[in-house]
């Protein structure tokens, strides 16, 4: 996938660590850009990224402009996204990895609140598109499972959350 393939909210299912690294690398080549990697587990593809962009003084700007945040539930994700949106100076890409983990952790406590927060997160990012200054990429690490037609979408399963998000909030699923 290239940068042109990124929409307001994109769900990426067929990714690999190398392709994610390449996309991050391409995005940060542009001036005035910043990337927020929101993660539920320690999954940033550091090795692949370092192969593409060696960690040296010349590339310091690139490494400085990647912000890694840990989020383990929907409330944390919502707070982080809200804070990112407040700053509109730079062109931003939000990469979310482990949405299923965050949603499940919140559902353990309160399922309806987890749904509410999911809605608020994506309505916020959709509402803050502002001419392409903010884009969101959701990495679906659970892989794609075809959904039979007419089957009711459930958000309880790990893949269900991506199907649900894809259907109601995403512009494109790759």
């Amino acid at each position: 996938m290239n940068l042109n393939g990124l929409k307001n909210v994109t769900i990426w299912t067929t990714f690999k660590n190398t392709t994610v690294s390449q996309l991050i690398c391409d995005f940060l080549k542009e001036e005035n850009t910043i990337l927020h990697y929101i993660d539920a587990v320690n999954s940033f593809p550091l090795m692949e990224f370092q192969n593409l962009v060696p960690a040296n003084e010349d590339n310091k700007r690139v490494y400085d402009n990647i912000i890694i945040t840990t989020s383990l539930n929907m409330q944390e994700l919502y707070n982080i996204v809200k804070k990112i949106i407040e700053n509109t100076e730079k062109i931003r890409l939000i990469v979310i990895n482990g949405l299923d983990i965050m949603f499940r952790n919140s559902s353990f406590n309160d399922s309806s609140q987890a749904h509410e927060l999911l809605k608020m997160v994506f309505l916020r990012v959709r509402g803050s598109y502002s001419g392409g200054k903010l884009k969101t990429l959701v990495l679906n690490r659970t892989g794609s499972v075809p959904v039979p037609k007419r089957k009711k979408l459930k958000t309880e399963s790990s893949n269900g959350i991506y199907e649900f998000t894809s259907k109601y909030y995403a512009d494109i699923e790759l």
């Binding site: 927020h36 990697y37 310091k60 490494y63 912000i67 890694i68 945040t69 982080i80």
Partner: peptide, 30 residues
């Protein structure tokens, strides 16, 4: 609430991976 840390800071802060003593196992674990 912190918005996170930059990748450069993360690399600086993180200690070197802990060796198992078996170099082949270390390689397998990156």
């Amino acid at each position: 609430m912190s918005l996170g840390i930059s990748l450069s800071q993360l690399i600086t802060d993180n200690p070197q991976p802990l060796s198992s003593g078996v170099s082949a196992l270390d390689d397998a674990l990156n």
